[in-house]
Design a protein around this nucleic acid. Structure first.
Length: 423
RNA sequence: GUGGGUGUAGCUCAGUUGGUUAGAGCGCCUGGUUGUGGCCCAGGAGGUCGGGGGUUCAAAUCCCCUCACUCACCCCA
């Protein structure tokens, strides 16, 4: 026997019940976006490596992506995120698009990482972006969408929160209040980002190690501990808009939210579960120079976020918000009494399908009826039709409801109506 | 990339200080019921104990290697 072929590490097989969950989740997300007027779009799954080298460090692209070489020797990347693709698509049509652009997308992404709880190498991600607006109204809208997603998934503010910060405000706080030289901002932001994980002591030590006077390290740590937020008119505006929309309960200002790299220019936010799950559910922010880096003629400001399917699934499982399994769509199983009567059963199935009722015709003529019933029952098919010699003679059909065990014999012509009544 | 854990029947798992023919529950198959699923009863099939090597009279059990899965760290665009 040939060796069993195992699936690629970090990928998942979606059996019907798993796929039903994916359909449910993507349906919920896309519907929320649709209610805010966001149009769906999609890009290629393969992109030239240069698209990512522009924006991200070579190390990350080299080590954390699936890359391949095509037959012409060109390096291609299985897309690890959508934003560069979005930038490319917007830049290519920037003269023709009507701004502001509201776009959303749900698709597959790939990252070459070590799989663990809530993270694999192939995953789905929902991206939602609002492009072409500079005002805080745009940021508030996108965060409002995020809050509505929580509502749609039945996740209340006691389970989840969105931690919000203004990177520009944080930077000026660090420079003006603490007195850290502007040149050091990059390092310091990176450490602030990780402060939650390493704890206060290590944080101070790391700051000092990086060359900061220990008085400043301590002062910054104190300030981060003491202050819930920074002085930021930008955040004040956003919070005002969010309160108008009635979603402020989901929002927590948190000046330690940074999100790695220089990608974001002001607003940054991350969603976190307030449970044991120590993982960001999604994150996003404002990027004001999106299209330039991919050859666009002008800078188009934008704000958006991305939500992966795996972390949110972990949370939904943990708080019991997964939808119930629904089984196959089949409503009616038409049993086949014998070879002779296959024609009659077949005709009935055709009639039922024509009426729009998902119908399965027995494929084992003459199989004992109890087997056929058992099969339908296990499949979760709610109705079974029987056409035996008695029924054929009188042009009737026996219809059994497997849910409650009731059974009736009715004219063949009345079957469809009877089924529709019982929906 | 670093470290831990786990691999025994289709599934979830037991398996004592190494000891005879490797077990249970669920599932599956057959029959009890040749026009009726679930419940019940009786019987049955199914395992090179992840793979390879070693120690031993004897290995699921001990040792080494390897593969897979999993959890955490690093990272998280």
């Amino acid at each position: 026997m040939p060796e069993q072929i195992i699936k690629v590490k970090g990928t998942r097989d979606f059996y019907p019940e798993d796929w039903a969950y994916q359909r449910w989740l993507s349906g919920k997300l896309l519907e929320v976006g649709r209610l805010f007027g966001y149009e769906e779009y999609e890009g290629p799954i393969l992109e030239p490596i240069e698209l990512y080298l522009e924006k991200t460090s070579e190390e990350i692209v080299g080590q954390q992506t699936f890359t391949l070489t095509d037959r012409d020797g060109k390096s291609l990347v299985m897309r690890p995120e959508l934003t560069p693709t979005l930038a490319r698509m917007v830049a290519a049509k920037e003269g023709q698009l009507e701004f502001p652009v509201r776009w959303q997308s749900y698709g597959r992404f790939f990252r070459y990482e070590r799989p663990q709880r809530g993270r694999g190498r192939a995953f789905f991600q929902w991206n939602l972006d609002l492009l072409g607006l500079e005002s805080a109204l745009a940021d508030a809208e996108v965060i409002h969408v995020a809050c509505e997603v929580f509502k749609a998934l039945d996740l209340s503010p006691d389970l989840v929160e969105i931690r919000l910060n203004d990177r520009q405000g944080l930077e000026s706080f660090i420079v003006d209040e603490i007195g850290i030289p502007p040149a050091r901002i990059g390092d310091v932001l990176g450490l602030i980002d990780r402060r939650d994980k390493m704890g206060s002591q290590k944080f101070v030590a790391a700051l000092t190690d990086s060359g900061l006077p220990s008085s400043q390290s301590g002062e910054l740590d104190d300030a981060l501990t003491r202050h819930q937020r920074i002085v930021s008119p930008w955040l004040d505006q956003m919070m005002g808009h969010l309160a108008d929309r009635g979603v402020e309960d989901f929002i927590k200002l948190d000046l330690t939210i940074v999100r790695g790299f220089d990608y974001y220019t002001s607003t940054v936010f991350e969603a976190w579960a307030k449970t044991d799950l120590r993982r960001a559910l999604f994150g996003g922010g404002r990027y004001d120079n999106l299209t330039r880096q991919v050859g666009g003629k002008r800078e188009i400001p934008g704000i958006g976020f991305a939500l992966g399917d795996m972390a949110i699934a972990e949370l939904l499982k943990e708080v019991d918000r997964m939808p119930a399994e629904s089984g196959p769509p089949t409503r009616l199983f038409v049993s086949v009494f014998s070879d002779d009567l296959l024609t009659a059963s077949s005709a009935l199935a055709v009639k039922s399908r024509t009426a729009g009722i998902p119908t399965e015709l027995g494929t084992n003529p003459g199989q004992r009826l109890d087997r056929q019933f058992k099969y339908a029952d296990r499949k979760g098919i709610p109705f079974v039709a029987v056409i035996g010699p008695d029924e054929v003679e009188k042009d009737v059909v026996t219809l059994k409801n497997l849910r409650d065990g009731s059974q009736q014999t009715l004219p063949t012509s009345a079957l469809v109506d009877a089924l529709k009544r019982q929906d």
